[in-house]
Amino acid sequence: MFDVLVRAVQSCADAGRSAGTNPFADATSLWIGLHSLADLSPVSPMFPWPEDVLDRLVDRLALLT
């Protein structure tokens, strides 16, 4: 599955939708961030999570433009 994520990030870069230059490193950051969000969300229900936190996380870690 990780290779699918790397290819998706590479596709974004190839299409000019990502400023990233290292798809493996960007996908690794994205993978870590998504897992962290998945782990933290259920155990921190009182935290004021922004409604668009997932979009913000993906946009920033994949360097989407």
Rank of each mutant, 00 (worst) to 15 (best):
M1T: 14
M1P: 15
M1R: 11
M1G: 12
F2E: 11
F2G: 04
F2H: 06
D3P: 02
D3C: 05
D3H: 02
V4H: 05
L5S: 00
V6A: 01
A8I: 15
V9M: 02
V9A: 03
V9F: 02
V9N: 00
V9G: 05
Q10G: 04
S11R: 15
C12P: 01
C12G: 02
A13M: 14
A13Y: 01
A13R: 05
D14Y: 04
A15L: 14
G16F: 03
G16C: 05
G16P: 08
R17H: 11
R17D: 07
A19N: 12
G20A: 12
G20Q: 00
G20H: 00
T21I: 11
N22E: 14
P23R: 07
P23M: 05
A25M: 12
D26R: 02
D26W: 05
D26F: 06
T28I: 04
L30Y: 03
L30Q: 04
W31A: 12
W31G: 13
I32L: 10
I32V: 10
I32F: 07
I32M: 04
G33Q: 02
G33K: 00
G33M: 00
H35G: 14
H35L: 15
H35T: 14
L37C: 06
A38R: 09
D39E: 08
D39Q: 13
L40F: 05
L40V: 06
S41L: 10
S41H: 12
V43D: 00
V43Y: 00
V43A: 06
P45D: 05
F47W: 14
F47Q: 12
P48A: 15
P48V: 10
P48F: 08
W49Y: 09
P50N: 04
P50Q: 04
E51G: 07
E51Q: 05
D52A: 11
D52I: 05
V53L: 02
V53I: 14
L54W: 03
L54Y: 08
D55V: 10
R56I: 13
L57H: 09
L57P: 04
L57K: 13
L57A: 08
V58M: 11
V58Y: 06
D59R: 10
R60C: 03
L61I: 05
L61H: 03
A62K: 01
A62L: 02
L64K: 01
L64C: 08
L64F: 04
T65W: 03
